[in-house]
Computed example of a mutant assay.
Amino acid sequence: MKLEFSLVQDPAATVIADIDTLIVAGWAGRDIKAIEHHIEELAALGVPRPSAVPLYYRVANNQLTQASNIQALGTDSSGEVEVFVFTVDGTMYVSLASDHTDRKLEAYGVAESKQACVKPVATSAWRFDEVVEHWDQLVIRSWIDEAGKKILYQEGTLDSLRLPQELIKGYTGNQSVLPEGHGMICGTVGAIGGIRPSNTFVMELHDPVKNRSLQHTYRVETLPVVADHPH
C-alpha cells in the first residue's frame, strides 16, 4: 500500500512509503498503571485482558488510508490517535494514525476488530531524528464531535507510551529502526469520558519544542449492518 507524505520542514518534498507489513502495537503503555487503566476501560466494553504486553497485531496493509472520509459498519466503531512510524531509504519517519476499531467486535476478538476497520493516516510527516531527543515531550490528542461541538477526546504526552525503538526491537528481536516496507502504529492514551463513537475524528501530534503539529481529520459514514431490501 503506497502512502505519500509531505515533509513539514520542506513542504515541497514528499516521501512515498510502500507499506507491505502493517503492525499495530497494542497495550504499549510505559506506565503499568496507564496500561491497567486502558485494559479496564476496554474491559468495561467486554474486551478480554491481553495475554501479554505489548502485543503486536498484524493488520492487512490495504486497511491503510489517507482519505478524509471512511466507511464503517454499524455504530460501534471509534478512533484512537496514535503515532505511526515507517522507514524509507534507511530513514525513519513519524506521522499520525488512528487505530479505528469496531468495539463490539473487539469484545469477541481484538485481532479481528483491528482488521475490521480501515486505519486513517495523516498526509504529513517528520523525520524521526528531528524529534527523538525530545520525544517524551510530544503530545498526541484527538477531538470528536458531540451535538455539533468539538470535544477534546484524548490528550497525553508520549512519555506515557513505550519508545518506538523499544516497540520495534520487541517486534523484530534485534533492530531499533523499523525495516523498510513496514509501518507500525505505536499505542494510544485513554479516552476522556470513556470510549465512544463519533462521525468526526480530529487527531494531532504536537511538538512543543519546535512549535509545530501534524494533523488529520476524517469523517465516518455509517453503513447499515443489514442491507436494505432491494426494490
Rank of each mutant, 00 (worst) to 15 (best):
M1A: 12
L3V: 09
E4G: 13
E4V: 15
S6N: 00
L7M: 06
L7Y: 13
Q9T: 09
Q9N: 06
Q9K: 12
A12D: 06
T14Y: 05
I16P: 04
I23Q: 07
I23D: 06
A25T: 08
A25R: 04
A25N: 05
G26L: 07
I35H: 07
I35Y: 04
H37V: 09
I39N: 08
A43P: 06
L45S: 13
L45Y: 08
R49P: 12
P50V: 15
A52C: 07
A52N: 08
P54M: 15
L55T: 15
S68Q: 15
I70G: 12
A72M: 13
S78L: 08
V83S: 03
D89H: 07
T91G: 01
V94L: 02
S95W: 06
D102T: 03
D102C: 00
K104C: 01
K104M: 11
S113T: 11
K114E: 14
K114S: 12
A125G: 12
W126V: 06
F128V: 03
F128R: 01
F128K: 02
V131S: 06
V132C: 11
E133T: 15
W135N: 02
D136A: 00
L138V: 06
L138G: 02
L138Y: 04
L138N: 09
V139S: 07
V139C: 08
R141D: 10
S142T: 07
E146Y: 14
A147M: 04
G148I: 09
G148K: 08
K149M: 03
K149E: 14
Y153T: 04
Q154M: 03
E155R: 00
L158F: 10
L158Y: 11
L158S: 01
S160V: 02
L163T: 11
Q165M: 04
I168F: 03
I168A: 09
K169W: 04
G170I: 06
V177P: 02
V177L: 13
E180V: 11
I185R: 03
G187M: 00
T188E: 03
G190C: 08
A191E: 09
I192C: 08
G193L: 07
F201A: 05
E204F: 08
L205N: 06
L205H: 11
L205P: 06
H206K: 12
D207N: 05
V209C: 04
K210F: 12
N211H: 15
Q215D: 08
Q215M: 08
V220A: 03
E221C: 09
L223C: 06
V225Q: 14
H229S: 01
H229K: 10
H231N: 00
